[in-house]
Amino acid sequence: MNEQRQPIIIRRKKHTRHKHHGGSWKIALADFMTALMALFLVMWILSMSSEEQRQSISDYFRTPLVVALAGGDKPTASTSAIKGGGDDPVHRSGEQARIDLRQQTRPADVRRHFAQVQRRIEQAIAGDPVLEKLRAQLRFDFTAEGLRIMVLDTETRPMFELGSDKLAPYMERLLKTMAPLLNDIPNPLTISGHTDSLPYAGGERGYSNWELSADRANATRKTLLAGGLEAAKLLLVMGTADRVPLEDTTADDPRNRRITLVVHTQSSADFIRRQGFFPTEQKQE
C-alpha cells in the first residue's frame, strides 16, 4: 500500500514594520501657533494705538499698490506696467497739468496734519508758563471746513482792552507763538472776530460791534504776520459782531468775545474763492 504523502506547509511569520508618520503634524502645529501669536500681537497693537493711528493703518491697506507707488491717491493712475500703457495722470488733453498735492491728499492725511499742528501748539503753550494760563481759553475742533482754533475771552483774562482792538500782552505772545506753527501746513487760513451783544451807546449807526469785531480780527492778522505767518496763507479776515454766538451760551456771555482761526481744507478754501472774494480773472474794460 502506497504511503500517502502529506503536503508540506511552510509557515513564515511576516515581520511588519510600522511606518514612521514623520513630523508634518508638528510643522502644521507650529504654523498654527505662529499665526495665532501674530493675531494676538496685532490685536494688542490695535488696542494700544489711537483712533488716528488706526485710521492711518486702514487707509494704508485700502490704497492700491500701484497708486502708492505712483506717489499718492491718484484716481487716474495707470495700472499698466508697460510704459505708455495707460493715461499719464500728469497730462490732460495733451497738455501737462499742474498737480496740486493738497487736492491729492487723502482726508485722513489732512486730519493727521491738522492734529500734528494742534499738538505742536499745545506743546508750545505747555512749555511757556505765561501761555499755560491761557490753555483753558483755547479750543480746537475738527469741522467740515478744517481745523478751527478759537481763543475765548473771560472776565478775568480778556484778550483785548475793553471796547478796543489793542491786544493784551499775553494774547500777542500767544499769536506770535502760533504763527510759525501754522506755516507748517500749506492750507489757507481765515480769521474772524466776534463780540458779545452788549451794544455801544450810539447803536449800530456809529462805531459798533461790527467795527470792533473787524478791527480785532485785523489786529490779530497783523500780530500773526509780525510773528512770521506767511501773508499768502491768509484767505479772509472778517468781523461778525455778535451774530455767531457759541452754542449753549447767552448772547451777552463773555466767551462770545473771541477770535476764531480756521485752517481750511482745500475744498473749503475753493468754496470761499468761488463766492467772488478772489476773482481769478479781471474783466477787460
Results as ranks from 00 to 15, higher is better:
Asp248Gln: 13
Met171Glu: 08
Leu147Gly: 10
Thr34Lys: 09
Lys133Ser: 11
Ile259Pro: 06
Glu145Leu: 06
Gln123Ala: 10
Tyr200Gly: 15
Phe271Ser: 10
Arg12Glu: 12
Gln284Ser: 14
Arg54Tyr: 01
Gln104Lys: 08
Ile125Met: 14
Arg273Leu: 01
Ile45Met: 12
Thr220Phe: 00
Gln123Gly: 03
Met159Ser: 08
Met178Asp: 03
Phe61Ala: 09
Met178Gly: 05
Pro169Gly: 01
Leu198Arg: 15
Ile9Arg: 10
Ser56Glu: 13
Asn256Ile: 05
Glu122Trp: 03
Gly206Cys: 03
Asp100Trp: 02
Thr76Phe: 09
Thr195Gly: 04
Leu198Gly: 06
Gln137His: 04
Glu172Pro: 00
Glu161Thr: 08
Gln104Val: 08
Leu138Lys: 05
Ser80Met: 01
Met171Gly: 11
Ile45Lys: 07
Arg258His: 10
Asn209Pro: 05
Phe271Gln: 11
Ala108Leu: 07
Pro89Phe: 10
Gly23Asp: 14
Phe61Lys: 09
Pro129Ser: 00
Glu230Asn: 14
Ala168Gly: 05
Asp153Ser: 15
Ser24Trp: 07
Arg135Ala: 14
Leu69Thr: 07
Pro7Gly: 06
Arg106Met: 10
Gln282Pro: 03
His20Ile: 02
Val130His: 04
Thr143Tyr: 04
Asp88Tyr: 06
Arg120Ile: 00
Asp128Lys: 01
Val263Met: 15
Pro7Glu: 11
Leu39Glu: 09
Arg148Pro: 00
Thr240Trp: 04
Asp196Lys: 05
Ala144His: 04
Leu167Tyr: 01
Ile10Leu: 15
Arg12Gln: 09
Asn183Gly: 05
Met171Phe: 15
Val66Pro: 04
Glu281Tyr: 05
Thr154Tyr: 04
Arg205Ser: 13
Val117Glu: 00
Arg274Gln: 13
Arg120Gln: 15
Gly84Met: 06
Ala68Lys: 07
Asp270Lys: 04
Glu51Thr: 09
Leu229Thr: 01
Val42Leu: 12
Arg5His: 10
Phe271Tyr: 12
His91Asn: 13
Gly206Asn: 10
Val110Glu: 02
Pro186Gly: 14
Glu230His: 14
Ser192Pro: 00
Gln4Ala: 12
Ala115Asn: 15
Arg148Cys: 02
Pro180Glu: 02
Arg216Cys: 02
Gln53Ala: 12
Ile191Asn: 06
His18Ala: 11
Gly86Lys: 11
Lys19Tyr: 07
Ser47Asp: 14
Ala38Ile: 09
Glu51Tyr: 04
Ser268Asn: 04
Arg255Asp: 01
Pro107Asp: 05
Pro129Trp: 00
Ala97His: 02
Pro199Gly: 08
Asp184Gly: 08
Gln118Asn: 03
Leu182Cys: 10
Phe32Tyr: 13
Thr177Cys: 08
Asp252Asn: 14
Gly94Ala: 05
